[in-house]
C-alpha cells in the first residue's frame, strides 16, 4: 500500500469517491469490479451473491436424488439437464462473487463450516416425484420473482449473471408446471401426489421471499444501493397473484384458508407464513440441513485428491515447458 497520503487527504479522497459512487447508483448505472465502492456495499454483495450461489449448489440435491428414479426417459433427461443448469448457475454466481475479490474455495469452506447460509427452501425433503414438478412450478417460480429484478442490480457482474440465469429458470418453471399438468391428467393416485406436494411446498415457497419487511433490517440499505430492487412483501404479493390462477388451471388447492381475491386492493389477501418455522430452518434446524451440508462437505473432501492431482500435473507440465524454453 502506498502510504504517502495524509489522513486528511485520504478522507477527502474517500468523500470524492463516495460521491462518485452515489452518483453512479443514482443514475441507475452499473458499478463494476474495479470501481471504488463502500466496504459495506462490497460485504453485502459478497454475502448475498455467495448465499445465492450456495443455494444453487445445495439446491441440486433435493431434485438430483430423483434423476436416477425419473419414471420416463424424457423426464430423466429434462431433470438431468435442469440439475446441471443449477450447477452452472452456481458457477456463474461464484464467478460474480470472485470479481469482488473473494475466492470460491473460501466461500465453499464457509458454506460447509456453516458460516454462510443458503435458501431455507432446500432444507425440506423431496418425498415423491410430484415434488420435482412442484419445485419447478413454485420454488423456481418464486426464485424467478426474486431474481428478475436482480437483472437490474447495481453491481454489473451480478446483474449479468442474473440475466443468464433467469433465462434458464423460465425453462425450469415451465417444465415443472408441464409435469404437473401431465400428472393431473393421469391417475387418481397421481393427482393425490400432486396435491400432497403442493400442500407441503406452498408455505416454504412463500418463505423464500424472506421475513416480512418490518423484520428485515438490511433491506432498506440494499434497496438504496439498488442491490435489491423490491421489498420482500412486495415480491411475495406478486408471487401469490401470479400463482393463484396457475393453481386454478392446474386443479389444485393452495393450502391457505385465508387466500382470497381482494377487489379493493386488486390483489390477493393471504395468510401469514409461520415465521418461527422460517427462523428455525434458517438457523439450522430444518428437516434436512445437516444432510445437505454433509453431502456437500463429503463431495468437496472426497474430491480433494482429484483437484490436487490436476494441479500437480499442471505444475509438472509448466515446469517441462519452462525447461524446454530455456
Amino acid at each position: 500500500m502506498t502510504q504517502t497520503a495524509t489522513g486528511a487527504g485520504a478522507e477527502a479522497g474517500e468523500d470524492r469517491l463516495e460521491a462518485h459512487f452515489d452518483g453512479v447508483i443514482a443514475h441507475d448505472r452499473r458499478i463494476e469490479p474495479r470501481d471504488w465502492m463502500p466496504d459495506a456495499y462490497r460485504r453485502t454483495l459478497v454475502r448475498q451473491i455467495a448465499q445465492h450461489a450456495h443455494s444453487e449448489i445445495i439446491g441440486m440435491q433435493p431434485e438430483g436424488a430423483w434423476i436416477t428414479r425419473a419414471p420416463s426417459l424424457r423426464r430423466k433427461a429434462i431433470l438431468f439437464a435442469k440439475v446441471q443448469d443449477e450447477a452452472g448457475h452456481g458457477l456463474y454466481l461464484y464467478a460474480a462473487a470472485e470479481t469482488l475479490g473473494v475466492d470460491r474455495a473460501d466461500l465453499t469452506r464457509r458454506l460447509i463450516e456453516g458460516r454462510q447460509k443458503y435458501s431455507s427452501i432446500f432444507n425440506y425433503p423431496t418425498l415423491s416425484f410430484a415434488d420435482v414438478g412442484v419445485i419447478g412450478w413454485l420454488v423456481d417460480g418464486a426464485a424467478i420473482c426474486n431474481q428478475v429484478p436482480l437483472c437490474r442490480s447495481s453491481f454489473g457482474p451480478y446483474a449479468r449473471a442474473m440475466v443468464r440465469i433467469c433465462k434458464e429458470e423460465s425453462f425450469h418453471q415451465r417444465q415443472g408446471y408441464e409435469l404437473l399438468l401431465t400428472m393431473m391428467r393421469g391417475t387418481e393416485a397421481q393427482r393425490a401426489m400432486v396435491q400432497d406436494a403442493v400442500d407441503r411446498w406452498w408455505w416454504p415457497s412463500l418463505m423464500m421471499f424472506g421475513p416480512p419487511d418490518e423484520a428485515s433490517p438490511n433491506s432498506a440499505r440494499s434497496m438504496a444501493w439498488k442491490i435489491k430492487r423490491h421489498s420482500n412483501d412486495e415480491l411475495r404479493q406478486r408471487f401469490v397473484d401470479m400463482t393463484v390462477p396457475q393453481a386454478e388451471r392446474l386443479g389444485v388447492t393452495l393450502p391457505d384458508p385465508e387466500l382470497r381475491w381482494n377487489p379493493e386492493r386488486g390483489r390477493h389477501d393471504f395468510g401469514t407464513p409461520d415465521w418461527d418455522e422460517l427462523k428455525r430452518v434458517i438457523s439450522g434446524d430444518g428437516p434436512c440441513n445437516e444432510e445437505r451440508i454433509e453431502r456437500r462437505r463429503t463431495a468437496h473432501e472426497d474430491g480433494a485428491w482429484v483437484r490436487e492431482a490436476a494441479a500437480a500435473h499442471a505444475a509438472k507440465q509448466a515446469a517441462k515447458r519452462e525447461r524446454k524454453a530455456s
Binding site: M1, T2, T4, G13, D35
Partner: peptide, 10 residues
C-alpha cells in the same frame, strides 16, 4: 476511475 494515487495499490 482511480485518479487518486492513494487508490493505486490494487
Amino acid at each position: 476511475d482511480e485518479k487518486d494515487p492513494f487508490f493505486q495499490p490494487s
